[in-house]
């Protein structure tokens, strides 16, 4: 199928995938559900099904949608920002920054102060990591420079996390929390988590109008400025949105890698690089990708989500690279 024909199907296909993923996520689990049972649960005519759905699966599904959308959108934005298709929140250390912030907050015992301490610490960590990456790897930086900056930052943030683990007397509960942050997961997600990550939706809406400017920026800052793009304002907004969205995703589900790298890459290959299409399609497709990964994680004996995204995303990305070369 030709590119312009494929492009017509980009949004319907992504939405179709998301609906299928949502349905699968709601019916698959320790208690399998038929469509009739799903309906009965949603309408509270079957109390057991309603309890499972409203207390466990719906919040889990919605958090998966939120973090998938956030990570994929952040990936698209960072790739346009750095003009490099290998830039992503995970590789650049922004996710690790968010996780390090959260781990420090848990390790220091600040988590008990307020429900919002850990997310705020995650946002702080992600912002610090983003600032470091911007300094280390400038826009238009070579892949090598970008990856090295990411490696350095990931190593540094890993050291912070190891320090917390080895130097604080931690309770079993705190250790479990820290492992949750490092491996990423959607177990026991509640409506509070759904609400906590809800600003991701606002971020996605604010990203929408930047699509055309991102097209121009991804071909060069000076060129974009000459064509009438307010480069400083657009780049600032891109960075703030990508950082906050990644931080919120990390705050509710820990470090979930590869989503921001793989999803935009696949959709760019399938439907072209224009951001007015790529941003919304990646947001919807990223949500579907994380949902499917979570279903696989649940079905494979409750594996961590971060392991599944890496197991699926890693080889897929390598295959894409090979195919491209």
């Amino acid at each position: 199928m030709k590119l312009d024909e494929r492009q017509k199907w980009a949004m319907p296909a992504s939405i179709g995938l998301l609906v299928a993923a949502m349905f699968t996520s709601l019916v698959v689990g320790d208690m399998g559900m038929s469509p009739a049972m799903l309906w009965a649960g949603l309408t509270h005519t079957d109390e057991l099904a309603a309890t499972v759905l409203w207390n466990i699966r719906l919040p889990r599904t919605l958090v998966a949608i939120e973090i998938g959308a956030a990570l994929a959108a952040s990936g698209v934005v960072m790739q346009a920002f750095f003009r490099n298709h290998l830039a992503s929140p995970g590789l650049l250390g922004v996710s690790a920054g968010g996780a390090a912030g959260a781990v420090v907050a848990i390790g220091a015992g600040w988590a008990a102060w307020s429900y919002f301490t850990v997310p705020v610490a995650a946002i702080g960590g992600a912002v610090a990591a983003t600032m470091a990456v911007v300094v280390l790897a400038k826009q238009g930086a070579s892949t090598e420079r970008l990856l090295l900056a990411g490696v350095a930052l990931n190593a540094l943030l890993g050291a912070v996390t190891s320090y917390v683990l080895s130097n604080f007397t931690l309770s079993y509960e705190r250790n479990a929390q820290i492992i949750f942050w490092l491996l990423g997961g959607l177990e026991d997600r509640t409506w509070e988590h759904v609400l906590m990550a809800a600003p991701i939706g606002l971020g996605a809406v604010l990203l929408w109008p930047l699509g055309r400017s991102m097209d121009l920026l991804s071909l060069g800052q000076t060129e974009a400025q000459s064509l009438g793009v307010d480069v400083v304002a657009v780049r600032r907004r891109m960075l703030v949105l990508a950082t906050v969205m990644t931080a919120l995703a990390t705050a509710v589900a820990g470090m979930v890698g590869f989503v921001g790298l793989v999803v935009p890459h696949i959709f760019r290959l399938l439907f072209g690089p224009e951001h007015r299409r790529l941003v919304p399609v990646s947001i919807v497709g990223g949500a579907a990708f994380v949902l499917f990964c979570d279903v696989v994680a649940r079905s494979a004996g409750n594996l961590r989500l971060g392991i599944i995204t890496a197991l699926i995303g890693g080889p897929f990305f390598l295959w894409m690279l090979r195919r491209q070369s």
């Binding site: 003009r83 238009g140 071909l219 060069g220 060129e223 760019r268 072209g272 690089p273 224009e274």
Partner: peptide, 13 residues
């Protein structure tokens, strides 16, 4: 309108 000495294209537009 501006045309640079050498254009760098990172993506396949």
């Amino acid at each position: 309108a501006w045309v640079p000495q050498e254009a760098q294209f990172s993506f396949g537009f």
